[in-house]
Design a protein around this nucleic acid. Structure first.
Lengths: 105, 105
DNA sequence: GGCTACACATAGTCTGGCTACATGTAGCAA
DNA sequence: TTGCTACATGTAGCCAGACTATGTGTAGCC
């Protein structure tokens, strides 16, 4: 996939992958790979700052836990994060309708 | 529509709107507004440089003409522009499948 | 002892659409 | 004749945001 196409959709992806479950950063990257059949291979330098940003925005909450000696910061959606996800999904539908409408014509 | 979502899709829009017809810059902006029901209102500072860039890439060709005293630079797709458009459409389908797959799950 | 996978983090870069501005014609209204 | 709006093209500079490169450290295998 071409670079930059992701612009503006990263938040939606991160929120979506945390919908209904708690994951830590590394697992989020793996989950996105899995769900996209390998198409999405986000670098850590993209994901970790984004997660911090979403937490600052109040859409995610995190807590540290230790699994077999390794520290993990586990993220989950907050209530307003769920609302944000719903909004992102709506925006995604609108976006694809608009662009797809122009491209498909 | 949120800013930056357009990133990486502008070329596809411009190529698509010129598919099968010749238009000048201003008319391209209007055509995109029309086709998107007003959702796409691209500033001239976005469109004109992009058109020049696509022409440098060999995907568009332009010529000046004068209509009622006003100069217009009219663009049309080149052969390789048509191929580029086809490639952009394929990429768009892949892109929406990937992101939509993650969001929809 | 070295390698790979796991796990987090940040500083700095770079792309590319956007803002703001500049220039000019045509036509209408006050 | 002055001003306004629509038409029409263009550039310089900004800035958001994803990416590159780099750093740190643990666990476990060979």
């Amino acid at each position: 996939m071409k670079a930059d196409t992701l612009r503006g959709h990263l938040d939606a992806l991160l929120l979506a992958v945390l919908d209904g479950r708690k994951l830590h950063g590394y697992a989020i990257i793996e989950a996105l790979q899995l769900r996209s059949d390998g198409a999405l291979d986000l670098p850590t330098g993209t994901v970790y700052p984004a997660l911090r940003r979403l937490e600052r925005a109040g859409w995610l909450a995190s807590e540290w836990d230790v699994v077999s000696g390794r520290k993990r910061r586990t993220y989950r959606l907050t209530r307003s994060g769920e609302q944000a996800l719903a909004a992102e999904r709506t925006e995604w539908r609108e976006f694809t309708a608009v662009i797809g409408g122009v491209l498909g014509a």
